[in-house]
Amino acid sequence: MAEYYSKNLARETMKGFTENGYKALHNGGTPPLGYDVNEEKKYIINPREAESVKLIYEMSIAGSSRSEIINELNERGFKTKIGTVFKANSIHSILTNEKYTGVYIYNKTAKKDALGKRNGHAYKDESEIIRVEGGIPAIVSREDFEKVQEILKMRRKKPGTNKAKENYLLTGLIKCGCCGKPYQGNRRHAKNKPMYVSYRCSFRQKTSSRFVTIRKSVKSTLKNMCCLK
């Protein structure tokens, strides 16, 4: 009976959440930066927070780096939803949140796994997700949101571009003649010698670092075995 009651309660609770979803009502938890929730559980714009969201999108479209955006936000005194300073992770979640275009979204994130952990990057099938166009007030335009998604896509293709200390104009354009992997910029500074900037195969760098890790692991294992003897 206790098991039946528990499962039935879960079904009824989920049914209530689903009904709220189709009405574009807040279903609990902390609302995204830029929004508050009124007594009717409707999303309303928080003017001060919305200003920071607009700034993040404007600077991203203008080509500013993640660190430049964070510095500008913190210098102007903006805070995250929980009242802390901005960091890289908080910026990424804002830039990829479609709700800022005015779309209410519910039931998007996949369920917890067998260990009770949830992967925030794993999503349910589109047929299970509740989407209500115009369900909440928009803070950024659909056009600006799509521009930012294109910028993020390009950055994923060139992961080292924003962290590089030099301008590598050929990154992503030239590939290795042996394995076909893209070349990436590399800078070396030997003692008493000038800076040496070049391009090298990204696969070569990954495999060499992997071999170094394996070599260290083998040495450590052998050392432990000798100690046991």
Rank of each mutant, 00 (worst) to 15 (best):
E39D: 03
E19G: 04
N186H: 14
V212C: 10
E12F: 08
F17R: 04
K193F: 12
A62V: 02
F203R: 11
T221L: 04
N186A: 10
G63S: 01
N8H: 11
V148N: 00
M59H: 05
K175H: 15
G135H: 07
E39Y: 01
M154E: 12
M1P: 03
L222H: 05
V148F: 02
Y100T: 04
V85D: 13
K165Q: 01
L55N: 10
K175I: 15
I139G: 08
K206F: 13
S93Y: 13
N167C: 07
I91R: 01
N38V: 02
L73Y: 04
G116L: 07
V103K: 08
I44F: 03
S127P: 04
E19T: 10
L170N: 00
T221P: 02
E68S: 09
K112Y: 08
Y43I: 11
F86D: 05
A110I: 11
N20E: 07
K191M: 07
F17N: 06
L222V: 09
E128N: 09
K193T: 12
A110T: 01
K108Q: 05
L152F: 03
G83L: 10
L95K: 12
Y183M: 14
A190T: 13
K157C: 07
N89R: 13
D113S: 15
V132K: 04
F86I: 09
M195P: 12
K229D: 02
G77T: 00
Y100G: 03
F211D: 11
R188Q: 10
R210D: 05
P182R: 07
G29H: 02
K191Q: 03
K87W: 09
C178S: 10
